[in-house]
Nucleic acid binder design. Structure first.
Length: 511
DNA sequence: CTATAGTGCGCC
DNA sequence: CTTCCGT
DNA sequence: ACGGAAGGCGCACTATAG
C-alpha cells in the first residue's frame, strides 16, 4: 500500500507551475505530478486543488478569517506534515461549522492545519481557500495535463467533465478503470451540465459574417441563467455555476412538471415578469431569487434543449434544437428569435430587443452544436454600450500582475448643484492598457491629496471616457447610483472636469 | 432582547 | 458579469 | 483560448453594541 500523498508534493508542483512561463511547461509539470499519484483519491484532490477547486461546499472562510488564522498560527512547524486527505478532512469539518462561535471554531480548525504546514504550504492552503492560487493555470490546463498523465484522449476527457459537471468524478473513474470509463459520462437528466457561453460580438455586421452570413438573433435578457432538468416527477434547477437552486424556485419546478414529457433538460434565463413596464431590474430579480420569493413573479424564457426523452441533443445543430424547443413549449416560455441574413436585419432585431427593455441580442450559428462549458464563436452577444465622461477622483495600487501600477480608478460625475464638486459613482480597472497604466502611474501622484493604504485620492482634474452597461441603485455611493460594468474607453485630455457628465445626465442615460 | 455592522457568497 | 494582454 | 487583474449588488449568517 502506497503512502498517502503529502500536501507538500502538490505545493512543490504549484511553485514550479507558477514559476514556469510557458503553458506547455506548466502542463508537463502538472502531468508529471498526476502520473506520480497512483491512489485515485489523491489524484482527485490534486487535480481539484490545482484547478483552484475545493471539492467541497463553501467553507465560510474568506479574507478576514484567513488573515486572522494566519496571524494566530505559531511561527514554527509542528506535528506530522499534512496529507491531501488531511486538507480535505479540514475542509469537510469547516463546511459543517455553524451557529454561535462559528468563526472561532473555523479559525481553530484552520490554525490546526496551518500549524502543521510549512510556509509555502500555508500560502497554498490560504490561496486555495481564497481562490487566489495565481499559478497561471486552472481547469483547462489541468485537464490537458490529466489527459497526458492518464493516457486519455483530451477532447473526450474534457467532454466528460463538461457533461458530468464534475472533474472529481471523472478523475476517479479514469484512474480506476482507464479511459474507457469516459464513455459513461453522457448527458444525464438531473445531473447539471456546464452551460455554453457566448463571446462578445464586435461590430454588428462583423458578427454576422463571422457566423457565415446568416444567424438566429435572440433577445438577450438581463436575468439569471437557469438549467432546468426533469426526469419523471423529479425536477432540479441549477444556476450557471451548477449550484442547485431547486428549493426556492418553486414556480420553475411546477412549470417543468407540467410539461408533456417524461424527461427533458432545458437552458434558459430566469427573469422578472415582463409586464408593460418592461423586465424587472436585475437587482430586484436577484432579491426575489435569493429570498426564494419565487412564486411572486419569477418567470423564465428558455432558449435551448439539451436532452429530450432520454436522447441527448447537445450534438444536434442549433436549428434542430430550436425546433424541438418550439414543439415542446408554449411560445410564451421561449425566447423570441428571428432569422437574420444581413446587417439591416440584425439592426432591426436589436432595435426590437432594446425597445422591449432588454440588453441586446445573442447571435447564434444555425448549424452549431451545444458546446457545453465553452465560450465559443458560435454564440455571440451584441450589446449597446453607453458612454460618458467622468473625472478621476482616485486610484488604487494594483496587485499581482498590476503591482507597482496605479489601477482601479475612482470615477466621479459632476455635481449638478455645485460646479466644483464631483460625486463618486463607481470604480473600474477594466479597459486599461499597459500604456494607460504607465501614464496613470506617472500622472496621478502629483495630483494626490490623500493616501490611505493602497488608495490614492487626487484632485479632480483628469477626464476619462467610460463605457458602462447601465446604472444601478446604490447604498454605497453618495449619489445613490453606481455604474454597472464600467470600463475605460480612452483618456480625454481635451476635456476639462467642467465638461464632465453630470449626475443627473448619468441617471437619465440608462434606465 | 433587538438593531446594526461585518463577512462570505454567488449573481450579473 | 466585464476588458485587455501575454503565452 | 485561457487566466488574471478587480466592480457592485443583495442576501444569509454571525458578531457585537446597547
Amino acid at each position: 500500500m502506497a503512502e498517502p500523498a503529502l500536501l507538500l508534493t502538490v505545493v512543490e508542483t504549484w511553485r514550479d507551475v507558477r514559476a514556469a512561463r510557458a503553458r506547455l511547461e506548466k502542463r508537463d509539470r502538472l502531468a508529471r505530478l498526476f502520473a506520480s499519484l497512483p491512489a485515485p483519491e489523491d489524484l482527485r484532490l490534486a487535480a481539484l486543488y490545482l484547478s483552484g477547486e475545493l471539492g467541497r461546499p463553501p467553507l465560510g472562510v474568506g479574507g478576514a478569517l484567513a488573515g486572522e488564522a494566519l496571524a494566530a498560527t505559531p511561527p514554527g512547524t509542528a506535528g506530522p506534515p499534512p496529507t491531501l486527505q488531511d486538507v480535505d478532512a479540514t475542509f469537510a469539518a469547516l463546511g459543517q461549522v455553524a451557529g454561535a462561535g462559528a468563526n472561532a471554531r473555523r479559525a481553530e480548525l484552520l490554525v490546526g492545519l496551518l500549524t502543521r504546514a510549512t510556509p509555502p504550504e500555508r500560502e497554498f492552503v490560504v490561496g486555495l481557500v481564497l481562490g487566489e492560487l495565481r499559478q497561471g493555470a486552472l481547469g483547462s490546463l489541468v485537464l490537458d495535463a490529466l489527459a497526458r498523465a492518464l493516457e486519455a484522449p483530451g477532447p473526450a476527457l474534457r467532454r466528460a467533465v463538461m457533461l458530468s459537471g464534475s472533474l472529481g468524478d471523472v478523475v476517479l473513474a479514469v484512474r480506476r478503470e482507464g479511459h474507457q470509463a469516459l464513455d459513461r459520462f453522457q448527458l444525464t437528466p438531473l445531473v447539471p451540465v456546464e452551460p455554453m457561453l457566448a463571446s462578445t460580438a464586435g461590430a454588428l455586421d462583423e458578427a454576422l459574417t463571422a457566423l457565415g452570413g446568416a444567424a438566429a438573433a435572440e433577445w438577450k435578457l438581463d436575468g439569471i441563467r437557469v438549467q432546468v432538468h426533469r426526469k419523471g416527477d423529479d425536477v432540479r434547477v441549477f444556476t450557471r455555476s451548477l449550484r442547485d437552486v431547486t428549493d426556492g424556485t418553486a414556480g420553475l419546478v411546477a412549470l417543468a412538471r407540467a410539461l408533456p414529457v417524461d424527461s427533458v433538460v432545458l437552458d434558459g434565463e430566469a427573469v422578472g415578469h415582463v409586464d408593460e413596464g418592461g423586465p424587472l431590474a436585475f437587482q430586484d430579480l436577484m432579491s426575489r431569487f435569493q429570498t426564494g420569493d419565487a412564486e411572486s413573479g419569477l418567470g423564465v424564457r428558455f432558449f435551448d434543449v439539451l436532452s429530450l426523452e432520454g436522447a441527448p441533443f447537445v450534438d444536434r445543430p442549433d436549428r434542430e434544437r430550436r425546433a424541438a424547443l418550439e414543439d415542446l413549449l408554449p411560445s410564451g416560455l421561449v425566447i423570441p428569435r428571428r432569422l437574420v441574413t444581413d446587417p439591416a436585419g440584425v439592426q432591426a432585431a436589436l432595435d426590437e430587443a432594446l425597445a422591449h427593455g432588454h440588453e441586446g441580442l445573442v447571435l447564434k450559428a444555425l448549424d452549431a452544436p451545444y458546446a457545453a462549458g465553452r465560450r465559443g464563436a458560435n454564440w455571440r452577444k451584441l450589446k449597446l454600450a453607453t458612454t460618458v465622461d467622468l473625472v478621476i477622483l482616485g486610484a488604487e495600487w494594483g496587485h499581482g500582475r498590476r503591482s507597482g501600477w496605479l489601477s482601479n480608478l475612482h470615477l466621479g460625475a459632476r455635481d449638478p448643484d455645485d460646479p466644483g464638486r464631483f460625486v463618486m459613482v463607481g470604480k473600474t480597472f477594466k479597459g486599461l492598457t499597459d500604456a494607460m497604466l504607465r501614464e496613470l502611474t506617472e500622472a496621478l501622484p502629483p495630483l494626490a491629496t490623500e493616501q490611505t493604504g493602497h488608495v490614492v485620492l487626487v484632485r479632480p482634474e483628469r477626464v476619462v471616457e467610460i463605457a458602462f452597461e447601465g446604472v444601478q441603485r446604490s447604498s454605497r455611493y453618495p449619489g445613490g447610483v453606481a455604474l454597472r460594468f464600467a470600463r475605460v474607453k480612452r483618456f480625454r485630455p481635451d476635456k476639462r472636469p467642467a465638461d464632465a457628465t453630470t449626475l443627473d445626465a448619468l441617471r437619465a442615460s440608462a434606465g
